[in-house]
Design a protein around this nucleic acid. Structure first.
Lengths: 225, 225
DNA sequence: GCGACTTTGTTCCTGCGTTCACAAGCGGCT
DNA sequence: AGCCGCTTGTGAACGCAGGAACAAAGTCGC
């Protein structure tokens, strides 16, 4: 049995596949049965050629002259992304951001289910957020083992993020999404992705300033030597 | 009047500069006066050579044989990123995520200040979050004009994100950070950055599944030696 | 049944980002 | 003062992502 496709899909492609999946869901709900690459690309905000290249990583799944069948493509992408079954997620750090994520309905409909909320602060333990009760950190290992949660989300302060990461990894979590503004070191076999909100803002600030400098050279901000 | 540096800095570099800036702040608070590229790179989680190349976009700002002066480098990066002065941000959509962001203290210390919170829902208007009062959408233009806010953050449902984007752009906002899971079209001169939380989770799910397939070859996946 | 049109899948190419490796420069020591 | 070691800054090579153009393939109309 030869491998039908190169088993390595570029990460950038994977991220776009997730976007296509969302668009396909919307199209399916709207009753559409087929889409062309051009239309799908427009809805996803990408180049049609790039979209076809992304989809080519899944093997041929369109019909020439017609387009892609919405339901089929949806299933195919779901399977490749590994979201055809719901995945358990545990969330550590129930501050504002953690609470917002726990209460965000958008995850459940996309194959993710929070199976445990944790916090170290005793006064947060016992609160109910998004239909779940916040549990103490001591319960983490047990919950992860019982629910087979494969994803951990860290929304703690930066100082404790690394220790939480270690703890999640030890409990058996294989994938970690880190919102704390520190680079995390995880043991091999554990993937870590980082989302840094203030970095996003700072990049925006830079782009804005750059544009300002180019558009309005009123003040010749000559860097004084 | 020669421009001392190429005024185009790669976006990836800008994002890392923001990380370096944070590390430098921590180092300065810790009393350190100089750092080597190796140490800084380790703290930021990047390659030392890459870090030096990033910094080279700012012109020479280190001392060979010694390293970088923490305070000087901090100021330099701050100026380049445009965060040496505080920037006003308006936030539209005070759901869970919006409230979390408004209440997040990490932004204020990094040169960003929320100057207006807005929501279309009447029952949210008047609420106080993070020291600010939620205002109706009608007040947006006036607040943006009065505060010279340059950044807008969209945390609304996907359906209204585009109209909010248009409205922000019309009000004079030049940079937009979009948390809604839709690609936004903005007029030229307005930068849009997107943060898609469920995409991050789905990429993680893919990586986890990929690793699972490699570790547990139940299906005969041809994994050549 | 046949031609033409539409749309996919692929291939090439260009540009960017990242990494490695080396030369230049500076401080400290003798 | 001269040498040595350390660190920066830069140049080159590699790999990857993105975009455009082209060939294959299937459908619709006649």
């Amino acid at each position: 049995m030869i491998q039908p496709r190169p088993r390595t899909i570029p990460e950038a492609t994977v991220a776009r596949l997730a976007v296509y999946l969302r668009v396909l869901t919307a199209l399916g709900d709207g009753g559409r049965s087929t889409v062309s690459s051009g239309e799908l690309a427009a809805a996803a905000g990408v180049n049609p050629a790039g979209l076809r290249k992304d989809l080519s990583h899944l093997g041929p799944c369109g019909v020439r002259g017609v387009g892609y069948e919405v339901a089929t493509l949806h299933d195919r992408i779901s399977r490749v992304l590994g979201v055809e079954r719901s995945r358990g997620c545990v969330l550590v750090g129930m501050g504002n951001l953690g609470s917002a994520l726990a209460d965000y309905a958008g995850f459940g409909t996309r194959g993710f289910e929070f199976v445990g909320l944790f916090d170290a602060a005793p006064d947060r333990v016992g609160q109910s957020i998004g239909g779940h009760t916040v549990q103490p950190m001591d319960a983490l290992d047990e919950v992860v083992a019982a629910t087979q949660a494969s994803i951990g989300v860290i929304t703690t302060p930066a100082e404790v993020a690394q220790s939480v990461c270690d703890r999640l990894a030890r409990a058996g979590v294989r994938s970690i999404l880190n919102f704390a503004p520190v680079p995390l070191a995880a043991p091999p076999g554990v993937d870590v992705r980082k989302v840094d909100l203030s970095v996003e803002l700072q990049v925006l600030a830079f782009l804005g300033q750059q544009r300002l400098g180019a558009a309005a050279p009123l003040a010749p901000v000559e860097e004084p030597a």
